[in-house]
Structures are given as structure tokens and as C-alpha cells.
Simulated scan of single mutants.
Amino acid sequence: MSEPLLVEEHDDRVVLRLNRPEVRNAIDRALVEALHEACRCLEEEPRIALVVGTGGTFAAGADIGQLRERRRDDGLRGINSGIFDRVHRLPMPVIALVDGYALGGGAELAYACDFRIGTPTTRIGNPEPSLGILAAAGATWRLRELVGEPLAKEILLAGRVLDADEALAARLLNEVVPADDLEAAGHRLADRIAASAPLAVRLTKSVLHAPRDAHPLIDDVAQAVLFETEEKHDRMTAFLERRKDKP
């Protein structure tokens, strides 16, 4: 049996490939456990992460066969919501590369990422109520934050599935590129992120995600930490030297 998640490690980033193409990368318990292990590694060694599906699909949803057998205690365990929240809280930015379908749990995984790049075939939505359940792994609140309440209600309550152009117009997708350029586009974005000081990016993400009542204290504390770093001094010195050399 093939691994449900393929991990490609690079110096400053990791590519996570959802690898269940025979079921359009449906998210089952084995894939959830593999994602937990990947998150553990990214928590210990913070790097940018790119999440991509195999076989022309990001993730067409959670595994319906497993969902059908889940009961109250399974719901209370938050099997999918737990891993998507962990993805959302990773120290460094996470980029979803969304080719084809991102439905149900697949959409919720994409919502948990910091950036989403799509292709012309991208389709994003949450049809959970049609199966007698709700989108309980983040969509009911993350989607509203991402696209606003009116559009979120169309998706969650009326079953609307967004195509690539609609998702881009709503800024649910940051960019739409040809399918054969998808991974390269993800790496270009990762390159832009990696060009900044890693700790500054990491703390900016933490401050950005902090609750409103944590500000401005958390901003000041994070800035105080960065003021003491050698990288801050070196980057500012280099900036001043470049400006001095200009005519």
C-alpha cells in the first residue's frame, strides 16, 4: 500500500503531497495521522509548507466510508478539525496548491492554509449538509473570515461550489495559474516568503493570528524579540549601505 502522504524536504520548505489519487485524495484517518507527523516535524524545525494533491485533485473531501461509521464520540474528538487547526497554527506559512476539486474536508484543509493558488479546473465548496452533516472542521468560521458572511452562507447553506474565477474574485484564491505551472507558482511564492528573515515571518504570522485583545502587547513583545536579533542588525545595515551607495 502506498503512503497516504509523500513528504519532500528542502532546506527552507517542505512539500506535502496528498497521495490517495484512487479516491481523489479523500482524507481518511491514515492521512490525518500522516499530516500530524508532518506537522510535528514542522513545529520542531519551522519551514514553509506547500500542500498539493496527486492525480489532478487537491482533495475531494473526507473519506465518506469512514464518516458514515463515525458516531457522537468521534465527532467530539474533532478528528479533522484537530489536524486542520494544527496546520493553521504551524509556525511558518502554509501554501495550498489547489488543482481540481477541494470539497468538504478538502476545502477545509485549504481554508486552514495561509495562501491558496488554484488552476482553471479548481472547484471549492462544502456540500456536507447534503450528506446529513455540517462542515465542522473549520469552514463555518474560517470561510466567513475569508470571504464574508453572505458568500459563506451560499457555500455552506445553499451548496454553492465556486469555480476558479469566482474563488479568485472573492480572494479565496490568491492566484490562478495553468495546471502545469501550479507547483512552480507555489515555489515562487515560497521564494518571496523565504527572502525575508524567517523569525520575522514566523512572529508576524503569530501576531496576525492573535486575538484582538492580545494587541498591542503581543506586537510590542514580538518586536522587542526581533530588535535583539543579529539578522535584524545585519539586514538594516545592508539596507543603509545600499542607500548610501546610490547616487
Rank of each mutant, 00 (worst) to 15 (best):
V177I: 03
D219W: 01
P216M: 06
A26I: 00
R160T: 11
L134H: 12
L131V: 01
P4I: 01
G53W: 00
G65S: 10
K232P: 00
M92T: 02
N80F: 15
P211D: 09
R47L: 02
A222H: 04
D181H: 14
H215L: 14
A238N: 10
D234Y: 01
K246F: 07
E9T: 12
A224K: 06
R40H: 11
L97R: 05
L42G: 05
G105F: 09
F58R: 09
R188A: 15
A222C: 13
T140L: 15
P178V: 03
A164L: 07
P198S: 07
R142M: 12
K232R: 15
L199V: 06
I48W: 04
E241V: 05
D180G: 08
H88L: 08
E44H: 13
E241H: 11
K246P: 00
T237K: 12
P127D: 09
E241P: 00
L103D: 04
P127L: 10
V221G: 06
V32H: 05
A195R: 13
L162Q: 10
H36G: 03
S130D: 06
H88D: 14
R116N: 08
H36V: 13
I117M: 09
V7D: 07
G104P: 01
L5F: 00
P150K: 13
L203F: 07
L35D: 07
P4E: 03
L208P: 00
A185R: 05
V147R: 14
G105A: 12
S2W: 00
R144E: 11
V225W: 06
A169N: 11
T229D: 04
A59R: 07
G75F: 13
L172R: 08
E231L: 12
E37N: 11
D213F: 09
I48K: 09
A152W: 14
G53M: 03
